[in-house]
């Protein structure tokens, strides 16, 4: 038994088709791939919000904003 359908090369390879593993699961893979893509956007947007919030917390202090504008350390 082989996950690719090939367990020996004693075949007429001119007649062999797909040899990736777990053939027949393509649509499930597609759905999983799309889910990964969508989840990535959600997580990324949340992470970006968090980063901006952290930055803005510092920049509410006018003195720190001024330092940031001069490329100086905030703390």
């Amino acid at each position: 038994m082989s996950t690719t359908g090939i367990s020996s090369w004693a075949v007429d390879i001119g007649q062999v088709g797909a040899i990736y593993p777990f053939q027949g699961t393509e649509f499930i893979l597609f759905l999983a791939g799309v889910a990964f893509w969508i989840i990535w956007h959600i997580v990324q947007l949340r992470q970006e919000d968090q980063t901006y919030e952290d930055d803005l917390r510092h920049l509410k202090d006018p003195e720190k904003l001024e330092r940031a504008m001069r490329n100086q350390k905030l703390e």
Binding site: W9, A10, V11, D12, I13, G14
Partner: peptide
């Protein structure tokens, strides 16, 4: 395919 043994008797090498 004949040079690497990926064949069976009667198959046309590719």
């Amino acid at each position: 395919s004949a040079d690497i043994g990926s064949t069976v008797e009667g198959a046309t090498p590719v």
